[in-house]
Design a protein around this nucleic acid. Structure first.
Length: 813
RNA sequence: GCGGAUGUGGCGAAAUUGGCAGACGCGCUGGAUUUAGGUUCCAGUUCCCGCAAGGGAGUGUAGGUUCAAGUCCUAUCAUCCGCACCA
């Protein structure tokens, strides 16, 4: 058959049209096959897919197709994280309703998705902005409300003046808004809804043990730090002259005899009582000055409150200070300062000339002497000047002193977490309405389940002004109280969109259910997710919230699994010609342009080829040229050999078969373990290079075998081309529904082992011997080699090391 | 400051178990095909010396272990990422 040019546009259009109504990506409901749930993180519908998305989906798609070919029942769904701020910003900018803008974007992106032929089961598509979806957000919220996991409190919250909304603590990056990195966050007091994720802090931490073999270590480390479990003790100091307690948290009770003051956070409730109006004003000023600042940049400041506290161990009176470095949100909002053994306390007390009293000496060393200390000794040691506990090690002292506090009723051992409850209220329109009603008579009333969903009204004016846009929609706000029927108001805040993405992967298992979020039996079949793939930027928020939701759902009795994701893969970023892609730089590599210029196969394959998937990839157009050339080489070879007469056997048959099976082995093993698709593709290139070099020496039997398997092994990476070759070979049906070809390790092996001959560790020659040749025979063989003899001439042989099938090293003097 | 990762040709990278450093690709050089450009095919391409045969050096830097180190150990430098007054 004459060679055909590689016309990617023609090939891809042909199969795009034929695959329009294909259903071979549909997951089976009742299947005897083993299941495999592969998931890529759902995108925000910004309107365009870029090369970063393509990388994410290409990894997942290759895996999904491979698993299908290995006989699995694969669930590979896709959806849209469709609520969120950009839709409102767009509405303000071009007067287009958020819903319309979002649906348009989804349409456009879905078209691109189809163009790339990613293997999604589109019947299961989920869009989080649809009432069919978000009603279950509301339902989960009500369940949490019932269980006391959702609550309301007035709190200082992060307020971004640009977004005009509240930010979760996690959305504050270095004191600034995560979307507007140059906008400092302000503090405002608002009534907010919170989810009690702290109730699960211990479980979230403990269950990470189940994830250790399936999740990247660094993600687990980040989560562990985020949860921030810290063991110590809570101790009550007493306000001098009263019975009033001031509770502090410390990890170092063993140093408490060195406490020379107690320091309160500026927001500490006791300040209202202790401070005069001037002092309260100073405390307020501290709070404001701290808002949105990088804590490292703020100098420690404080002032004496005028009152004293009694150390319950020593009965000593110490001054109570107010300090800007003490955080209300951590521990009890009050600390005991032990300047001799804590760097921060040291800095503070030096500055204000507060006493410094060493009580811990290094093991085998001397107790520090004051005045004259220049640094705090923060390590464990031997406790001194500490009553009956003197002479104990720090560790012993901590245990015994905490027990003492418990027995005497002024404290106990305690555990504190860094993680805070999840503030979910947003003063925004484009999100899930929070299903509660405020009734003047009945107070806070949950919307009854049978009245869900609380629908987002369509006609809303979005101005970007501070209050929630829903406040201005009387038909939304004004409602009859479900309890008493009287006039009442709806909650106008909407939910954080991280709620949407915390459970969407469950909905994929039963996306059209209108009686429940899903049928538990379906979850029992599909869960856990076997492989989740996405960016490391979601290492903390999305993935911790998802784990939290899973545990709550389990406790409600909906599901049985405690963790949603068995294996997580975090792919590296794609940057463009050395720079991070961003709209403002205008260097975003769009997926449509890629498909236009090279075709989907080339774009996919390049991002897989450029680097291993966990690493960053630099998109370079010339690099893509290389893949395009390679696919052309494959196609031209296939078309010119198919149907071309050749003898049954050829001189290069064994060599070609060896390369083929080496290649198959490599790819198979990589899919099962480390996913270095870059070297998999390199290996296919090597095979094709051999086919070119030996084209005339390949017999027809081997040739047909190689072409069939070449199409099969290209199927996960370049499905269009693989399918086209599959058809040229005379086969029907989708190539990626064929069985994955098995490799034969015997065929993959070379006929003889190549033995490297070194002299003093330097390569001097190589000899060949059958596999398994014993060491002494190898030595003889090496010594008999003329090149080796030349290298060791006139030298004395000291030692010979022979490694079977590998090398001989001759040590000479 | 704490934690983690990464340093290999002009570039992206490979070397999975301590055993041939640089597979594969880009770029570049040369040749063939072509009226020409492009395409395609073939060859070369770590650096230094050499016409060549050949030799020497070489995986951020300095040491160490070993017959043998990109790989293991110690120190150090650089870059990137995460966390950062968490008591």
């Amino acid at each position: 058959m004459p060679e055909k040019p590689y016309d990617h546009a023609k090939i891809e259009l042909k199969w795009y049209q034929r695959w329009q109504n294909a259903d071979f990506y549909r997951a089976e409901e009742n299947s005897a096959k083993p299941k495999f749930y592969v998931l890529e993180m759902l995108p925000y519908p910004s309107g365009t897919l870029h090369i970063g998305h393509i990388r994410n989906y290409s990894i997942g798609d290759a895996l999904a197709r491979y698993k299908w070919m290995r006989g699995f029942n694969v669930l590979h769904p896709m959806g849209w994280d469709a609520f969120g701020l950009p839709a409102e910003n767009a509405a303000i900018a071009n007067r287009q309703p958020p819903r319309q803008w979002t649906l348009q974007n989804i349409q456009a992106m879905k078209k691109t998705h189809r163009r790339f032929a990613f293997s999604y089961d589109w019947d299961r598509e989920v869009s989080t902005c649809e009432p069919e979806y978000y009603r279950w957000n509301q339902w989960f919220f009500l369940k949490m409300l019932e269980r006391g996991l959702a609550y309301r409190k007035k709190a200082l919250v992060n307020w971004c003046p640009k977004c005009a909304t509240v930010l979760a603590n996690e959305q504050v990056v270095e004191g600034c808004c995560w979307r507007h990195e140059d906008t400092p966050v302000e503090q405002r007091a608002l009534e907010q809804w919170f989810l009690k994720i702290t109730a699960y802090a211990d479980q979230l931490l403990a269950d990470m043990r189940q994830l250790e073999d399936g999740w990247p270590e660094r993600v687990l480390i980040m989560q562990r730090n985020w949860i921030g479990r810290s063991e110590g003790a809570e101790i009550d100091f007493t306000l001098a002259g009263t019975d009033q307690k001031i509770r502090v948290f410390t990890t170092r009770v063993d140093t408490i005899y060195g406490a020379t003051c107690v320091i309160l956070a500026p927001e500490h409730p006791l300040n209202a009582q202790l401070l005069d109006p001037a002092g309260q004003a100073r405390a307020k000023a501290m709070v404001d000055a701290r808002a949105g600042r990088d804590p490292g940049d703020i100098e420690k400041e404080g002032f004496f409150s005028g009152s004293y506290a009694v150390n319950p161990y020593s009965d000593e009176n110490v001054p109570i200070w107010v300090g800007n470095f003490v955080l209300m949100g951590y521990g009890t909002g009050a600390i005991m300062a032990v300047p001799a053994h804590d760097e921060r306390d040291f800095e503070f007390c030096r500055k204000y000339s507060i006493a410094i009293r060493p009580v811990i000496r290094p093991v085998g060393g001397e107790l520090g002497v004051e005045p004259g200390l220049t640094v705090a000794f923060t390590e464990d040691g031997i406790v001194e000047h500490t009553g009956d506990w003197s002479g104990l090690t720090s560790e012993e002292a901590r245990d015994k002193m905490a027990a003492h506090a418990r027995v005497n009723g002024f404290g106990d051992a305690a555990v504190t977490f860094r993680i805070k409850d999840w503030g979910i209220s947003r003063q925004r329109y484009w999100g899930t309405p929070i299903p509660v009603i405020y009734c003047p008579a009945c107070g806070l009333v949950a919307v009854p389940e049978d009245q869900l969903p609380v629908r987002l009204p369509d006609r809303v004016e979005i101005t970007g002004a501070g209050r929630s846009p829903l406040e201005n929609v009387p038909e939304f706000v004004n409602v009859a109280c479900p309890k008493c029927g009287g006039a009442a108001r709806r909650e106008t805040d909407t939910m954080d969109t991280f709620i949407d993405s915390s459970w969407y992967f469950y909905r994929y298992c039963d996306p059209h259910n209108d009686k429940a979020p899903f049928d538990p039996a379906k979850i029992a079949y599909w869960f856990e997710i076997d492989q989740y793939i996405g960016g490391v930027e979601h290492a903390i928020l999305h993935l911790i919230y998802s784990r939290f939701f899973t545990k709550v759902m389990r406790d409600i009795g909906l599901i049985r699994n405690s963790e949603p994701v068995r294996r997580l893969f975090t792919q590296g970023m794609v940057i463009a010609e050395g720079a991070k892609m961003s709209k403002s730089k205008g260097n975003v590599v769009g997926a449509d342009l890629l498909a236009e210029k090279y075709g989907a196969d080339t774009a996919r394959m390049f991002v897989l080829f450029a680097a291993p998937p966990e690493k960053e990839v630099d998109w370079r157009w010339e690099g893509a040229d290389g893949i395009y050339r390679f696919l052309g080489r494959v196609y031209r070879f296939a078309t010119r050999r198919i149907g071309t007469a050749a003898p049954e056997a050829g001189a290069a048959d064994r060599q070609v078969l060896r390369k083929l099976h080496q290649c198959l082995q490599k790819i198979t093993e990589d899919f099962e373990s480390r996913w270095h698709f870059n070297t998999c593709i390199a290996s296919i290139m090597e095979l094709v290079n051999v086919l070119y070099a030996e084209e005339e020496n390949i017999g027809s039997a081997v040739l047909n075998d190689v072409l069939v398997k070449l199409a099969l092994m290209l199927a996960p990476f370049a499905p269009y081309l693989a399918q086209e070759i599959w058809e040229e070979l005379g086969h029907d049906g989708p190539v990626f529904r064929q069985q994955w070809p098995a490799y034969d390790p015997e065929l993959a092996k070379p006929e003889e082992a190549e033995i490297v001959v070194q002299v003093n560790g330097k390569l001097r020659s190589r000899v060949y011997a059958p596999f398994g040749t014993p060491q002494d025979a190898l030595e003889k063989l090496a010594l008999a080699d003329p090149k080796t003899q030349q290298s060791i001439a006139a030298k004395q042989i000291v030692r010979i090391i022979a490694v079977p099938d590998k090398l001989v090293n001759i040590v000479v003097k």
